[in-house]
Simulated scan of single mutants.
Amino acid sequence: MSTPAQGPRHVAIIMDGNGRWAQQRGRPRLLGHRAGAKRVREIVEACPDNGVEYITIFAFSTENWKRTQEEVAGLMGLFRRYIENEAQDMLGQGVRVRFIGDRLRLDVKLQRLMNWIEALTAHNTRVNLTIAINYGGRDEVSRATKRLARDVAAGRLDPDDITDETLPRYLDTHVLPDPDLVIRTSGEARISNFLLWQSAYAEYEFVDTLWPDFRRSDFEAVLARYSGRDRRFGGIKA
């Protein structure tokens, strides 16, 4: 059974290329991350006009801790400033903000800001922005499995009742629909441990544009290509 062509409800983006964008200009990598953060606003603002209800962005992976201390510290500072500077605008624009990933390794001030903006925007419905920070798909599944195992051990869940619909209820994204479309910028063609379970039947687009140069027109071009695809979900075309 195939699904008629239509725009994606949920788009996930691997925002790659910030560092290279800065290096091409002879500037520090952190400058590229700042430019990339500014690009987020433009893409989020384009979502409602294009029928996109959910957008999930990959901001910092569990593997990104391997980067230099200077870059990691700079990114953490950038996340804090982004929340502080964008909160009121997101509230006014009807954006609901959520975070996925393991927060425990993040500094306390950042955790408090994340909790604050989630509560501040909790009643917004125009577009749902989910930001993945200290997130990895394998780590998420591992943490979800531990929670599931605890429920089994406590007698709250019968192992015989576990199906492929059970684990998603324990994932960070349990309140979100699965992504219809995953976009990766910068020309790299890999998924980098992002939404492994959720994107099992997502469509993928790998674009050459570096994230700081990925504009609304580029986004809308990808959405248009998606609408021309035939999604069969393992079936055959009728």
Rank of each mutant, 00 (worst) to 15 (best):
residue 210 L to S: 00
residue 81 R to W: 09
residue 227 S to Q: 13
residue 169 R to N: 10
residue 151 D to G: 02
residue 94 G to E: 08
residue 68 T to P: 02
residue 150 R to G: 05
residue 197 W to S: 11
residue 206 F to N: 08
residue 96 R to P: 05
residue 107 D to P: 12
residue 72 V to H: 06
residue 175 V to G: 01
residue 237 K to A: 13
residue 12 A to I: 13
residue 32 G to A: 01
residue 92 G to H: 12
residue 223 L to Y: 02
residue 198 Q to M: 10
residue 35 A to R: 00
residue 223 L to D: 04
residue 45 E to P: 00
residue 28 P to R: 01
residue 68 T to D: 03
residue 158 D to E: 05
residue 231 R to Q: 09
residue 81 R to Q: 15
residue 99 F to P: 03
residue 15 M to K: 07
residue 96 R to V: 03
residue 11 V to K: 13
residue 38 K to E: 15
residue 219 F to K: 05
residue 152 V to S: 07
residue 104 L to I: 12
residue 40 V to M: 14
residue 32 G to H: 00
residue 52 V to T: 04
residue 44 V to G: 04
residue 110 L to E: 04
residue 84 E to S: 14
residue 146 K to T: 12
residue 51 G to D: 08
residue 85 N to Q: 11
residue 36 G to V: 00
residue 157 L to H: 02
residue 144 A to G: 03
residue 185 T to G: 07
residue 93 Q to Y: 09
residue 154 A to P: 01
residue 182 V to N: 09
residue 75 L to S: 05
residue 196 L to S: 10
residue 101 G to S: 08
residue 171 L to Q: 00
residue 189 A to H: 14
residue 26 G to P: 10
residue 17 G to Q: 11
residue 232 R to M: 01
residue 73 A to Y: 05
residue 37 A to P: 04
residue 104 L to A: 14
residue 176 L to F: 14
residue 219 F to I: 07
residue 62 T to W: 01
residue 17 G to Y: 10
residue 125 T to A: 15
residue 191 I to Y: 04
residue 85 N to S: 13
residue 166 T to V: 11
residue 92 G to L: 15
residue 146 K to S: 11
residue 108 V to S: 10
residue 156 R to I: 00
residue 136 G to Q: 03
residue 141 V to F: 03
residue 227 S to D: 05
residue 187 G to C: 06
residue 20 R to P: 12
residue 215 R to D: 14
residue 145 T to C: 07
residue 108 V to G: 07
residue 160 D to T: 12
residue 15 M to V: 13
residue 79 F to Y: 15
residue 4 P to H: 11
residue 76 M to V: 07
residue 140 E to T: 00
residue 42 E to W: 01
residue 220 E to W: 01
residue 98 R to I: 04
residue 27 R to Y: 04
residue 99 F to L: 07
residue 14 I to K: 08
residue 184 R to V: 09
residue 123 H to C: 03
residue 65 W to C: 05
residue 8 P to Q: 14
residue 84 E to Q: 15
residue 76 M to E: 08
residue 174 H to W: 10
residue 165 E to N: 13
residue 95 V to A: 06
residue 94 G to W: 12
residue 201 Y to E: 13
residue 75 L to Q: 02
residue 9 R to W: 11
residue 183 I to W: 02
residue 233 F to E: 04
residue 173 T to M: 07
residue 213 D to C: 05
residue 146 K to F: 09
residue 105 R to Y: 03
residue 25 R to Q: 11
residue 7 G to A: 12
residue 9 R to Q: 11
residue 3 T to K: 12
residue 1 M to P: 10
residue 60 F to H: 06
residue 27 R to V: 07
residue 153 A to T: 06
residue 131 I to Y: 05
residue 198 Q to A: 14
residue 116 W to R: 11
residue 124 N to S: 06
residue 201 Y to S: 14
residue 53 E to R: 14
residue 188 E to V: 00
residue 75 L to F: 06
residue 109 K to S: 15
residue 174 H to E: 12
residue 105 R to T: 09
residue 93 Q to A: 15
